[in-house]
């Protein structure tokens, strides 16, 4: 199945901004993160949205889902 992955801020370093990727049916968010070598340290404060809805590591993805991951900032 095809998943669109959008990365923001530092997560783009050495990766991409947006990419359509193929995954087997039943893949969850964590498996995509592993596949992109985004480790727990990088994801400690990462926010995950699937199709504009807040999601978690174990959210199972479907064909054509848009997965957006960004580290929120809190400075002012």
């Amino acid at each position: 199945m095809k998943i669109t992955v959008k990365l923001f801020a530092n997560l783009r370093k050495g990766r991409f901004k947006v990419n359509d990727l193929e995954f087997p049916e039943g893949t969850n968010v964590l498996q995509v993160l592993n596949d992109l070598s985004i480790d727990a340290e990088e994801m400690k404060i990462g926010i995950i949205f699937v199709n504009g809805r807040h999601a978690s590591f174990d959210t199972v993805l479907k064909e054509q889902d848009v997965l957006a991951i960004f580290p929120p900032v809190a400075g002012g």
Binding site: K44, I45, I47, P72, V73, A74
Partner: peptide, 26 residues
């Protein structure tokens, strides 16, 4: 609004919305 380094983030929350909690819930 929030900033850090080269990155900024912005949203508008109306009463009843929960976007701030979604951003910082981790």
């Amino acid at each position: 609004g929030a900033v850090e380094g080269w990155v900024g983030q912005l949203t508008t929350q109306f009463p009843g919305d929960t976007v701030i909690e979604e951003i910082y819930r981790q």
